[in-house]
Amino acid sequence: MSEQQQNTQGRTPEGPLPEPIRFFGTTWVDHDGGYGLRRAGVAAGALAAAALGAFALRLGYEGLTIAEVGGILNAMVIVMFAVCSAIAFRKTWEGFTRRPTGAATPDALRSVRTVGFVGVLLAWSLRAMKEAPGEALHREEYETARARFTKRRGARTGNPAARTPKRKPR
Rank of each mutant, 00 (worst) to 15 (best):
Y142P: 04
Y61S: 03
M76Q: 12
R156W: 06
A128H: 06
K166N: 10
G71I: 00
V112T: 09
G154A: 10
L126H: 04
G102S: 09
R58Y: 13
T157Y: 13
L52F: 04
R110V: 08
M80F: 13
L59S: 11
A104D: 15
A147R: 13
R153S: 14
T157C: 13
P160Y: 13
V112S: 15
R98M: 07
R146F: 06
K151Q: 14
K91M: 09
G70T: 00
G116W: 03
R167F: 12
S125E: 03
A128C: 11
G95Q: 03
M80V: 13
A161W: 04
M76R: 11
F96W: 03
F117Y: 14
A82R: 00
R99H: 08
F89G: 04
A75P: 02
I78D: 13
A103T: 08
R139W: 00
R113V: 14
S125F: 01
G102I: 01
E143C: 12
R167E: 03
R127Y: 09
T65K: 08
R98V: 01
H138C: 07
L122W: 07
K130V: 10
I66F: 02
G60S: 09
A136Y: 09
E131H: 14
S125R: 01
T144Y: 13
V112R: 11
A155L: 03
A50P: 01
Y61Q: 06
A103Q: 10
L73S: 04
R146T: 03
G102P: 02
T97M: 11
K130P: 02
E141I: 05
R156T: 08
P133E: 05
T114R: 13
E141H: 06
T150A: 15
R58D: 09
A54H: 05
I66N: 09
G102Q: 06
A136W: 07
V83H: 07
A162N: 11
A88E: 11
T144F: 10
T92Y: 12
S111H: 12
E68S: 11
S111V: 14
L52A: 15
I87V: 15
L122P: 01
A86C: 15
E140T: 10
